[in-house]
Simulated scan of single mutants.
Amino acid sequence: MNPKRGVILYGPPASGKDTVTAGLTELNSKYVQFARLKVGTGKAAGYRMGTAEQLHKLRAAGDVVYANSRYGNTYVIDRPGVDAAFAAGVPVVHLGQVDGIRALVDGYAAAWLVVLLWCPREVTEQRSTGRGDSDTAARLAAWDATREDLDKHPGATWDLTVDTTEASPKDAARLIDQLLAQRAGAATT
């Protein structure tokens, strides 16, 4: 039996999670970005907007795989949402915390490919400013938190590391797709 396969993209803000995901979906329509449940305000694109009551019900049912707070919002990886993403194809989950990766890998049975996307802090600042973010200072604070997160978890391992200042989003997508295909082939032999 072929297990469910998914991709986790980890990295600081503006490291390329959205653009690499776009590259994956252009490469093959089987890839679908997992839309985390967002409880709060602000940008809704790429999220499933939810309520505090909805989050409470998910927690009561044991369906919260991982939740974190950032930018004054709560972001949730929920079991029903991940189920729906797998039903649609190969989910691509964006995360910025090693604890989130561990929670997802340990809390949702699937063959996860874990990818570190990285760029220097000044590149995050340039990209954030260039795309017109109104909260670049908060994104730089999140970059700092991601660096600290990596420093706190020196044993964190990656199936693939991509410096997004060196590799284009399409090249990164091809590398991810090839590695996922290799893993699938190795699992069936």
Rank of each mutant, 00 (worst) to 15 (best):
W112I: 02
T124I: 09
G130F: 11
L116Q: 12
C119Y: 12
G130P: 13
S128L: 10
W118P: 01
A145P: 03
P120R: 02
A138K: 09
C119M: 14
L117E: 01
E122F: 14
V115D: 03
R131M: 10
V105S: 07
L140K: 03
R139A: 00
A141F: 04
A103L: 03
T136L: 08
A145W: 03
A145E: 10
A110R: 07
A103N: 06
V123L: 12
G130M: 13
W112Y: 13
V114Q: 04
S128H: 05
A109Q: 02
A137H: 15
A137M: 15
V114G: 05
L140G: 12
V105I: 10
P120H: 07
Y108T: 09
V123F: 01
L117R: 06
E125N: 06
A109S: 11
A111M: 14
L140I: 15
D106P: 06
A109V: 08
Y108Q: 06
D133A: 11
A111R: 15
L113D: 01
Y108P: 03
T124H: 00
D106T: 05
Y108N: 08
L116D: 02
V114M: 03
D106Y: 01
G130Q: 13
E122K: 10
L116A: 07
A141K: 00
A145F: 02
A141M: 03
L104T: 09
D133G: 02
V115M: 06
R127C: 09
T136K: 05
D133N: 06
R131T: 14
P120W: 05
Q126S: 12
T124S: 12
Y108C: 09
L104G: 03
S134L: 15
R139M: 00
R121S: 01
G132A: 13
A138F: 07
W118A: 11
E122M: 13
R131Q: 13
V105Q: 08
R102P: 08
R121A: 07
R131Y: 10
A142L: 12
Y108K: 07
T124F: 09
E125A: 08
V115N: 04
G130R: 12
D133M: 00
A103K: 02
L117P: 05
L116R: 10
G132M: 08
V105W: 04
A111I: 11
P120M: 06
P120A: 10
D106N: 14
T129D: 13
P120D: 11
V105R: 14
D144Y: 03
L116T: 00
R102V: 00
A109R: 02
A138P: 02
L117A: 11
D144E: 14
A138S: 12
A138G: 08
R121F: 01
Y108R: 06
A111K: 14
E125R: 11
E125K: 07
S128Y: 07
T124Q: 08
Q126H: 11
